[in-house]
Design a protein around this nucleic acid. Sequence first.
DNA 1: ATGAAAGCGCTAACAG
DNA 2: CTGTTAGCGCTTTCAT
Lengths: 336, 336
Amino acid sequence: MSNINIRALAKELGLSVGTVSKALRDSHEISAGTKQKVQDLARKLNYIPNPYASSLRRRKSKTIAVVLPEIANSFFSLAIDGIEAVAVEKGYHVLIYLTHESLLKEEAILQDFQSGRVDGVLISLSGQTTGTGHIRDLYAKDMPIVFFDRVCEDVETTKVITDDFESAYKATQYLIGKNCKRVGFLGMSPGLSITIKRMEGYKKALSDHQYAFNSSDIILCPEDPEKSYTTIRNALERKDRFDGIIASIERLSITTYLVCRELQLSIPGDVKIVGFSNLSSAAILNPSLTTITQPAFEMGKAAASALFKALKRESAMPANECIIIPSTLMVRDSTG
Amino acid sequence: MSNINIRALAKELGLSVGTVSKALRDSHEISAGTKQKVQDLARKLNYIPNPYASSLRRRKSKTIAVVLPEIANSFFSLAIDGIEAVAVEKGYHVLIYLTHESLLKEEAILQDFQSGRVDGVLISLSGQTTGTGHIRDLYAKDMPIVFFDRVCEDVETTKVITDDFESAYKATQYLIGKNCKRVGFLGMSPGLSITIKRMEGYKKALSDHQYAFNSSDIILCPEDPEKSYTTIRNALERKDRFDGIIASIERLSITTYLVCRELQLSIPGDVKIVGFSNLSSAAILNPSLTTITQPAFEMGKAAASALFKALKRESAMPANECIIIPSTLMVRDSTG
DNA sequence: ATGAAAGCGCTAACAG
DNA sequence: CTGTTAGCGCTTTCAT
């Protein structure tokens, strides 16, 4: 790289490095004329400060981390989009880390952050994460952390979620209204906040409508897509199979469609489906999919904004609050 | 963060910082016993080296940048997945930057990389990018750059692409074989390598099959989704409308479906469609979409691997080669 | 095999 | 207002 540095600038101008440094950062203790001269020369020589020198000295990196279970998923892609939008605006850089639903990886990643590599962390937990020691460890070192979507209640910081309970309730109620007699719930990762809340909303709707619930109505799918296909297939082959399904994870809606096709079950004739999903193609599926559409982009933005609010005031931690952005039930043909 | 540092370790052990540093990096000039003691204490005290101090000193960041036009897109999400897989393996960190199809943003981003913030760059060009000055500038400063998908021929480095010409040719030929009389091409960003090559493959297939081509067969859509809806709608309202369509961008397939629905055109009855797409839902669209499926994950992996090959040998630049990973034509119902 | 010391490029006290 | 200086934490000659 062999770039021009602040010392070269200073020499060229006959000034001290200290003065140049302050002039570049537009310090009030530097005269307008000097600032001008410094900044002009900097531009002319295409001076680009070394971010690592600056980070080392100032103990801040102007970088945040986004830790995700996966990325090939409309929800998380959109969330990143929202996060990036506010990061750019604040002049921050964004590091991406994927846990691939593994707690071990999540721990290793958060551990690394103790180095000071990032100034703050946005995280959506892995499906395996139940304990929170690794998070508390990092938090204890004053690292601002904001959760979104897959949160963990017992860390006192900002969480950005959607109304998981209510939207699952609404979805279930909608299926019941459509005359479904046996409504099943497809989930993954039973330890996850979203799974639990959505499940509770679902159960509450059942009981509010005097529907019996038994544990076989909840199908917990493995993380491996192949295996979850089999799991769902088995569920739909039972002779007392569901005639209504809540797919609480984007991917499971697609799998359910494929299973229905193979078993020659008609949607919505034999089975009605509503899925938590941000698929841009939901409207043109066969049949079009009724979705609980999460405000993914807005959730990303809100989470990032909360983080930067803390970052702005030196060493303040994010407020212990829960920001809830509601999802939308978009009725389409899969519910008849 | 107030972490333990190398000096504290040294003091605790009664060694010099130099020795500790070498022991931690497993240098051959340190005795086995000392290494052991150092590494044990480091683990015990949870010593985590400051990456910025190290970066400053060694002039390398163990970080790469991925520059993308957008992220809410199956192709790019999958590519990131591939990139991340190899970055993790190599112990590198991944910074994400989005150009949102803007050349101005792309320039600003690459400019920043002159700071040495990253050791290498993976980039897929913005739709507006025609000139390559900003890329050459960075390249001239010895920054390893690897292109993928949306490449630029005139920088002598590694490019990872799919067989754009051939797959567009195949898709067009397939539509012709299905008896389409007038095959249209939907594209975006006419300056882009992928647009040009796909267009050429399309044209060649037409001429090889004695189909007349006139310029109105190519519909260039604006980047704004709303506007491209109108553009496509206008094209399909013409009375000499297409009965076959190649959608060369993922998003345009979906838009075309929506337009067909509004205009009550049957797919594949009135119009047959094949789309360049990595949508996981392609098989369950209404009707299921015949796709040219790009090897997105593999392309990401290949691009990252090429970059790391250069990074390994200090200051070597990526080879000037073009890695072509073929796409697959997956025939489904949208082509009848 | 270990230590001493210089310095990566920048910032922040403190002096003047 | 500008300059001087002392590091941030780590790596790397060069001595010993």
